[in-house]
Amino acid sequence: MNQITTIWLVEDSTVDLFINSRVLAQSGFAGDVLQVPSPEDALNALATSAVLPDLILLDIRMPEMDGFEFLEKMATLPKAIPEKVKIILLSSSIDPVDYQRALTNPLVLAFIPKPLTVEKFNNLKW
């Protein structure tokens, strides 16, 4: 947990972006939180940004590009990027296919059912 200083929230719902930012603040996380409503923008930023996030909280069902497509594209970026950036999927899906895809993806650290709470966030182990 100590090494997490920058978190990106990749999520199309503005309400959930707000909730997740507030929950992170309440959990005592003191680092930077960046809201990225477009997965496309997030990928571009990953490829070009000087500062990489330590963690991305990634929504699954988003218009235009879903979370799994995002992960596929992310895996094709230079190796250092997927190696550094941890991914936690965050979704209100109860589809076992989504769970299965999440848990078998090597980039994914965990799957959290929405809504995010302080308890769920603090229970994560890295």
């Binding site: 309400v15 959930d16 909730i19 997740n20 929950v23 069902r61 209100s92 059912p113 809504p115 709470t117």
Partner: peptide, 11 residues
Amino acid sequence: APLTSILGLLY
């Protein structure tokens, strides 16, 4: 999805 958002806000 909207229900979990409401739950998050209520939380």
